[in-house]
């Protein structure tokens, strides 16, 4: 463990907590893409199949459980409890366009052709594009509540910090994982225009407005 990876995990945890708090306190999931949340739940489910078979540390196991619980709690809040506030009309990204290519690629490019490893690889590829429905929704509505933009900033920062972690691990212990690293770069690049808007607008107290 290093501070970059710990920082990334905490940024990820912060993002998940911000989202749950936003939905719970405003009792609304307006502006949030349920489809992205489905992809995140799918990502954690496919990635943490080794929760009971591969014990790394208490921290690792606890965080996996927290991520899984939070992902499904968010789905429950969005599709059951506050279903009436879910914005179907703007959350129209076709999930099969993301799930099928990720699954296909995971079968072709992986570290080992075993169930657990292919599922891990699938989760890595899926996570890289899981935010697309959310970014698509923000571009369709043309704006995002500031709490939603804080959520996106924390979520984008998490994988950016993981990239720093991979560079650090390469130089400090010779560890590298090209699949996770390249997917992480793609994932972070997808946030770039959002990061620009967040830093130039939201941090100056303006609302996140996308150029129409």
């Amino acid at each position: 463990m290093n501070i970059f990876r710990l920082g990334g995990d905490l940024a990820h945890l912060l993002a998940i907590i911000i989202l749950l708090l936003k939905i719970w306190t405003t009792r609304s999931c307006a502006g949030i893409s349920g489809k992205s949340q489905i992809l995140f739940a799918l990502t954690f489910t496919a990635r943490y199949l080794d929760l009971f078979t591969n014990f790394v540390s208490v921290y690792n196991s606890v965080m996996k459980v927290v991520y899984l619980a939070a992902a499904y709690a968010t789905l429950y809040l969005m599709y059951v409890k506050f279903k009436a506030t879910y914005d179907h009309n703007h959350d129209t990204f076709r999930l099969e366009f993301l799930i099928l290519p990720a699954a296909g690629l995971a079968l072709i490019i992986n570290h080992e052709f075993s169930i657990i490893e292919v599922m891990w690889t699938f989760s890595i590829y899926l996570e890289a594009v899981a935010i697309l429905p959310q970014l698509f929704m923000v571009s369709k509505t043309g704006e995002a509540e500031s709490i939603t933009s804080h959520y996106l900033f924390a979520l984008g920062s998490y994988r950016a910090l993981y990239i720093v972690n991979w560079v650090y691990r390469y130089y400090s212990e010779g560890f590298y994982d090209m699949i996770a690293t390249l997917a992480g770069v793609v994932q972070t690049v997808l946030y770039c225009d959002f990061f620009y808007l967040y830093i130039t607008k939201v941090l100056k107290g303006k609302k996140l407005q996308l150029p129409a």
């Binding site: 990876r5 995990d9 990820h12 080794d50 078979t53 591969n54 790394v56 690792n60 965080m63 996996k64 991520y67 570290h111 080992e112 657990i116 891990w120 993981y162 972690n165 010779g174 560890f175 590298y176 994982d177 090209m178 996770a180």
Partner: peptide
């Protein structure tokens, strides 16, 4: 790359 048995990252 040397592969850890399983993955140690979240």
């Amino acid at each position: 790359c040397h592969r850890l048995l399983g993955h140690d990252e979240l």
